[in-house]
Design a binder for these strands. Sequence first.
DNA 1: TAGGCCATGTAACCGGTTACATGATTAG
DNA 2: CTAATCATGTAACCGGTTACATGGCCTA
Lengths: 191, 191
Amino acid sequence: MNIRTLCLAILHESDATGYEIKKLSVEGKYRYFAEASFGSIYPTLARLEQEGLVTLREETQPGKPSRKIYSITDAGRRALVEALSEPPTPDVFRSGFLLVALCAELLDRATIAAAVEGRITHLREEIGHLEELLRSTNDPTTHWAAAYGIACMTKSHEYLADHRHEIEALARDDGVVETSPPAATFRVAAT
Amino acid sequence: MNIRTLCLAILHESDATGYEIKKLSVEGKYRYFAEASFGSIYPTLARLEQEGLVTLREETQPGKPSRKIYSITDAGRRALVEALSEPPTPDVFRSGFLLVALCAELLDRATIAAAVEGRITHLREEIGHLEELLRSTNDPTTHWAAAYGIACMTKSHEYLADHRHEIEALARDDGVVETSPPAATFRVAAT
DNA sequence: TAGGCCATGTAACCGGTTACATGATTAG
DNA sequence: CTAATCATGTAACCGGTTACATGGCCTA
């Protein structure tokens, strides 16, 4: 998914500034399509305007930088439909965590546990966001997409919680020494 | 995940040529980390060799182009561990399908149904590949990763199959005209 | 008063893809 | 006889990120 289509899709839902589009594509409900930065959004918006796919009105607000509010045009809506009509590129899943898991024998248990922990936290946050989205929207398509995401991520979270001990047990085992309590036992008795 | 780490991870498992690495990263079990092309793999391998992280032996086989078989070195293994030890970048999920779903009101039912169909087929294939991988490997980390993938994708598949009618029902409804047969009925009678 | 938020934009850079170049072998 | 597979590599290109430039307002 390129920035172009992303911008059109967002503007199809409602008018927005470049700044708002960036927020939506990083934190908002459009973050599953392409992660855009200012350096890509602003030039894209400018090109879209040249091509007549969007229009803009400038709003000068006293004491604040003026904002350019973009709106999609009919031509833009047509271009969006065209882009969405060709078979979507297969969904992409790229996991840094999974590579850590695959190389578990190379790493110590703490590193793996940290990676698992990070992934679990991330999933929990993501599910939280989607549940919030579900509560706050009336749009049926958003509702459907959010529910789908929640179902998948909940399963992922559940599986990880249930099976994390297995992958953690496969760590490079040179930390075994730590399982047998050191002199501490005696020290406790001594204090 | 960059091509560099990907190459090291693959070579950590076994020696390979650039050609083989490409296959593994596109079709094989390493396809969830980075999709690499020849244009990125060959230069990466050359650089890795210069840096002493891998070594290569050349094998001239009669009637076939000679192959350069790469092996990871101790330094390479250390570099890999280092790369894997820093907290993994959060998993990325990018869905062309989900954007189609979000924009369902813009599209006709057939387009959405095709997108759903494509996604279901893709999930089924993916699950099939992972099940095959599960059967054919003894490596416990591969086993764990494959089982995790199967669990997530099965849930995704199941949810889609159960709820596809909902999103398909949200399509732009101007295709209804097509349900009433056109003049063709008369033409058939005339012939 | 430091840092974060709003708001827009440019320029350098970079990781990666696409297309090209080459060529023998084998399967359909 | 064509297409795919094996096998390596280069050069042009491109989409996108990072860093830079600017600046006022608001909150901790």
